[in-house]
């Protein structure tokens, strides 16, 4: 059962809406507005689920994913991103290592923005 959720997302308005909705459903929600503080929280605490935006300041989403993978963090990982696949390839070619592609394959699910909140809740609840 999922109880404790960490949201790493730099848009504070997005964080507020997600926080309000998920708290109402009885989850314990923690927020990080950049990759660095997200990473610190992952080290300090154990989360059942991590909701991660890819384009965040100070350690982008890929670096956080890499960290999760290397440290064998057992949390469910849901990536939320505004990137579509076709654009994704082009942008990654410029900004990231090809390895980022493989990192994305290891996460539990990827939701493309703008997604419906019920989709996120379903992904969180999915066993």
């Amino acid at each position: 059962m999922i109880k404790k959720i960490l949201i790493i997302e730099d848009d504070k308005d997005m964080c507020n809406e997600l926080n309000e909705a998920l708290m109402d459903l009885g989850y314990q929600v923690h927020l990080a507005f950049n990759g660095l503080s997200g990473k610190k929280m992952i080290v300090k605490d154990k989360f059942d689920c991590i909701v991660l935006d890819l384009k965040i300041p100070k350690y982008d989403g890929y670096q956080v994913l890499n960290f999760i993978h290397k440290n064998n963090i057992r949390s469910k990982v849901i990536v939320i991103t505004a990137r579509m696949k076709i654009h994704y390839e082009e942008i990654t070619r410029r900004n990231h290592e090809q390895a980022d592609n493989d990192l994305l394959k290891k996460v539990d699910s990827v939701l493309i923005k703008p997604f419906k909140l019920i989709e996120l809740i379903n992904e969180i609840e999915k066993p």
Binding site: E17, L18, A21, P114
Partner: peptide, 25 residues
Amino acid sequence: LGLLAAAVAHELRNPLSVIQAALYN
């Protein structure tokens, strides 16, 4: 133009996703 379209699509999806979440609430 392709890069621009990608950048703009990406940018617009962010506020839209917040609106989507607000509607849920």
